[in-house]
Every structure is written in C-alpha cells, then in structure tokens.
Design a protein around this nucleic acid. Structure first.
Lengths: 205, 205
DNA sequence: CAAAAAAATTGACGCTCATCAAGAAAAGTC
DNA sequence: GACTTTTCTTGATGAGCGTCAATTTTTTTG
C-alpha cells in the first residue's frame, strides 16, 4: 500500500472540470478519493447518455489502461470539487504482477461492472420507460429499509433520464404517473417515499 | 499451458443445449473450442435480448467465476454442435496467482467487453434503429475490404433484431429502406453488398 | 427431394415516447 | 434576500416503431 501510494499522484478538480474527454489518449487509472464524477457518452447527434456516477472508492480508466492504443470513448466530468488518485499504467502493471491478489479483486470488480452494463443494455433494449424507472428505484433502495422505504435519488432527474435512455420530460411524467397511482410520494430534496416496494415492482405492466 | 490443460474438462453440446441457464449457480470458466454459443437475457415479460455470440476462442462465465455468491443472469445456448473447455474457479485462481501475466490479458479482454457493452447501451439508448443498424453493418465490415465491401451477416436477422433491441419486422423494413436508397444490396445467403461505406454511415439521419 | 419448421417479409394500426414551447420551481451565486 | 441559472413540470403534436396477422421465402430434416 505504501509503495502504491508512493507512485500515485493526487489531482484536484473543480466542479465542471474534466478528468478526461472522449478521444483523448492517456493510460492512467483514476480512483476517486472525494467528490463525484459523471461518466457519459455523446452520440454523433450530440445526445448524451450517462454511463455511471463515480463516488469515493470507485475507479475508471480501465479501457485505455489495458488497451495500449485505445483512446477514451467517454467523458469524465467532476460534478463537484473532487480529488482523484492517479496511477500510471506502468506502475499499475508492476503492482499487478507483484501482487496477483489485486488482479483478482480487480477482475471481480470488472465483472460486476460488465454484468451491470449488460443488464442495463437489456433493460434499455426491451423494457418500457416506466419499467426501467421502477427497476431503477428498486435498485436504489437501501437493503435494510423494509418494504416501505424512503430513498434519496442519487442524481438529478435529468441524469436519471439520461441514464435510462429517455428525456427529462418523460421522466417527469412517469414520476407523476407513479404518484397518481399512489405508489410513491415525491418529497422535497430528491427524496422519494415508496408506499410498498412489492406493489411498485408489480406495476411494470 | 500443459498444467492448465490437465485441469480442464472438455464438454460437448449439441445444437439447442445450454451451457448454463439464468439463475443457475456454478463457478466455471467456459472457453469455446469449436462451434457457436448465443448469450442472451430474458426480461420478466419474456422478451429476449441477445448479449453476444461466442465463437472459438471466446470465453464466458466471468460473472459467477469472480463473484462467489452470484448466479447466472444470462442463458448460454449452443447454436450448433459445440465443444467447450471448462475450468473450475479454484483452478483458475491458482493459475492467475501463479502467472500474473494471464490476469493482465484477462483484464484487457474484460475491459474490451465492458467498453463494447457500454457503447451498445449508449446506442440503444439514444440512436434510432436505422442508425444502430448502419453502425452494426459498419462494425462487421472486414477492415481490409476497401470502401465498397461485401459482408456476410454474422447472425440471423432475427438475432440482429434482438441484439439491436428491436423486432425482426422492423429490421426487415430497415434493410428494405437501405436497399431502396441504393446504399446496400441484399444478396443470397446472408450476404450484403455495401455500395459506399461512407455514404452508408452518412445516412443515419 | 419432398415435407416440415423456422425465418423473413409485408400491410394495417395504434401506442409509447420524443420534440418543441413556455412557465414554475429549485438551486446556486453575490 | 434578490438575482441568475439550472432543473423540473405540463401541454400539444406527431413520428417511430411495436404488435398482430397473413404470406412468402429459406433452411432444416428425414
């Protein structure tokens, strides 16, 4: 750990600054220390799709890290003041060769991300917006909260829209629909009261 | 290599047999030797989404392999007579600890798959069907074929539909549209003649 | 090669959801 | 607390695409 820390740089980013942009080339591993980072893609037509949000402890950069000639395909933007630990490819490879257990950990993390991404693809491909929204809410319920939990949305509704592959207008309407059905209540400050989680999950017609 | 081969089993599957099904639990790594395997997901409502096709040399099983308590979320079905090399988790971990270079190779492969999956999510989320189809065709052009290539579709059109998150009917119509525009010609036996690759890519209104 | 099964095509119809516009609410800033 | 900016909401409209149904074409099988 000490040896790793010795090789790592810590970088600070202000809200709105980018760790990297699409098409840029580098080969560092980025580990978020403090703050929040939005990872998103832009289509040719300029529409953005939110890929994921990095919180402290999360990392990114694996694409260019493990594929020497690759360039970034995503944008990584700090959405608040953020500090990030950077390790260069060369050093990462050293550590992985020296401590194979770290590779196993990394492989576990990567396979989780892959699973989650493939699930996301399948959902966007075949489920309706209301179903995707319900599943999104269910995924964001803290496990130990029982069947009638209150959750805090982990991102702005416009970001939920982007993440779910739809528009803010539609998300707004679908939240309204769920509220009209008595399945949720929208409280202040991104908080949502779920009346009955099972009922909510059943609603995905 | 010899040592790995010693621990590996080779299994044979007939067309239509499953290497594994969703919700099943196991912890093997599957490497395709010969044949072809369809990996797909089923939604609650029974719609299928094709995740990818495994050809000789490709592997799967990483999700349950690196996440001890996980169950499969996908179906792996042989679409022709197929032989598969299986290695148990325990043995995989041994090898990875002993030969760290293999881990790096695996991490490279996994990050490619992750990149590809995230690209796929973004496309399904924000692009129209015709755009997705055009991008799919472009991805399947052999690089060294110049600007007016003939390609062979790597799967049935119904599978393309499932992969792109749409229906066979719509795919059929979109192929027709591209043909009416003079951008492609549909030849016999899954072969497609592309008139001009650049024009085709520009068509994605 | 004929019969059966699977895949692909075509048409008609309607629903979900994107788009554009405009106003309200919330959050960030001095 | 007033001002600005961003986010959210609500309405009207229509395009894109899914669904259902029927036929044709291709592939598979004995």
């Amino acid at each position: 750990m000490d040896r790793i820390a010795g090789k790592a740089h810590t970088n600070h980013y202000q809200k709105g600054e980018f760790l990297f942009r699409s098409q840029e080339k580098d080969d560092a591993l980025y580990i978020v220390n403090r703050g929040k980072v939005r990872i998103y893609r832009l289509s040719d037509s300029g529409k953005e799709q939110l890929v994921r949000i990095l919180n402290p402890g999360d990392f990114t950069g694996e694409w260019t890290l493990f594929n020497p000639d690759a360039v970034h395909e995503e944008y990584a933007e700090a959405t608040r003041d953020t500090s990030v630990c950077m390790i260069q490819q060369h050093d990462v490879q050293e550590f992985l060769k020296e401590y194979p257990a770290i590779s196993l950990k990394l492989l576990g993390e990567m396979s989780q991300r892959l699973e989650s991404s493939e699930r996301q693809t399948a959902q966007v491909a075949v489920e309706s917006v209301i179903t995707r929204l319900v599943l999104f809410l269910a995924e964001n319920v803290e496990p130990e909260m029982g069947n009638s939990p209150t959750i805090t949305l982990p991102m702005a509704k416009k970001d939920i829209a982007s993440y779910l592959g739809t528009t803010p207008e539609t998300i707004s309407r679908k939240f309204g629909e769920l509220e009209d059905e008595g399945l949720i209540q929208q409280l202040s400050g991104k908080r949502i009261k779920i009346q009955d989680l099972d009922d909510l999950l059943l609603y995905s017609e």
